[in-house]
Amino acid sequence: MQETAKIKLGISIGDLNGIGCEVALKTFEDARMLDFCTPVFFASNKTIAFQKKELGIDVNYHGIQEASKALDGKINVVNIWKEVPVINFGEDSQEVGKYAIKSLRAAVEALKNDEIDVLVTAPINKNNIQADDFKFPGHTDFLAQELEGESLMFMVTEGLKVGLLTDHVAVKDAPSAINPILIRNKVRTIEKSLRMDFRIRAPKIALLGINPHSGDNGVIGKEDDEVLKPVIREMSDAGHLVFGPYSADSFFGSDAYKKFDAVLAAYHDQGLIPFKTLSFGKGVNFTAGLSKVRTSPDHGTAYEIAGKGVADHSSFKEAVFMALQIFKNRQEYQELTENPLQKQRVRR
């Protein structure tokens, strides 16, 4: 019997002055990880050599010129640049930011061309990546432009999944950015992802209120009554299992989130603070709704510990496994939709 080819997992290297390269290399320091996928780093041989030496990480790697030449059973490094970047761990550097973008662009291009199957992105610094040809507040917005679909920032772990109506938007601008069209699109995107990526047949979704206590019937803001509630009623009447809006301050502490398959938060910190409190180190940032699979760890560059060799790679490892599982789930979902008689295999 012919052996099935392993999933090619691309890795954009992130901020070289942060912990991204460290957690990525530590993940594959365990040779058993090569049984699950073929890792493809987008950087350079010399950059990876410097990082592994400085951090004391014991891995061997294979240098290649293009992702399509990646070998199973090896850690592959696509040489994106020839020069040697100046790396000063813990430093916010515009020059290093350029290499983060070079790595990301090359990885996304390989993903679009099916040279890799999935992408895991190491953390970037949103400040030093800004350039004339790259004006995005983060990975999600760039990927939404490059890959087909309606993007959704989806923080996921085994027992908790939190999507965002607005992600990298200033708090003062979030309420005005939320409108019926946005809500409908995000709900449909999260529903499709739960079915296709997580094998949930009839997803049940909770929406958090925009204002404290969901506005207290208009006493603390009218957005919940005038924007959220009408759309929730409309979608519920149309057969969507959408509920709320719920008061965000008590929703997580009371374990109410356990009654739902996913939670849709109004803005960034409303969703990410409880998510990271409940699952830090095990959570994964997944960009749902796109034609390709991209995940990342639930932490940033962590300059304060960069270069010390003490970074915990648990979240990056979870991001790897999540990307692989979602890729497999999508393949199965496609098979099931093409053969409806097998749909009973998808759990309720």
Score class of each variant (00 low, 15 high):
T4Y: 00
G10V: 05
I11G: 09
G18Q: 13
I19C: 10
C21I: 11
A24S: 15
A24N: 06
L25E: 03
T27M: 02
T27Q: 07
D30I: 03
R32T: 13
R32A: 13
M33I: 00
L34I: 04
D35W: 00
F36I: 00
T38S: 12
S44R: 13
T47W: 03
K53L: 11
E54R: 14
E54F: 10
V59F: 04
G63L: 14
I64H: 01
E66G: 03
A70T: 04
L71R: 11
D72V: 09
K74Y: 05
I75G: 06
W81I: 13
K82M: 01
A100L: 13
A100Q: 11
R105H: 07
L111I: 08
E115N: 06
I116R: 06
P123C: 07
I124Q: 09
N125C: 06
I129A: 09
A131Q: 14
P137S: 10
H139V: 01
T140W: 00
T140R: 01
F142G: 04
L143D: 08
L152C: 14
M155Q: 05
S176L: 12
I181P: 01
K186F: 07
R195D: 05
F198S: 04
F198Q: 09
I200V: 15
R201S: 14
A202S: 14
G209Q: 06
H213V: 12
V219T: 10
D225F: 02
D225L: 15
P230S: 09
V231C: 09
E234F: 07
S236C: 03
D237S: 08
D237H: 09
L241T: 03
L241V: 00
Y246L: 11
Y246N: 11
S247M: 04
G253C: 04
Y257K: 05
A262W: 11
H268A: 11
H268Y: 07
Q270W: 09
I273Y: 02
I273G: 04
K276C: 04
G281A: 09
V284K: 08
N285H: 09
F286S: 07
V293F: 07
R294G: 06
R294V: 08
R294Q: 14
D298I: 01
T301F: 02
T301D: 01
I305Q: 10
G309W: 01
H313D: 14
K317W: 00
R330Q: 08
E335Y: 15
L336K: 08
E338I: 07
N339G: 03
L341Y: 12
Q342S: 01
V346Q: 14
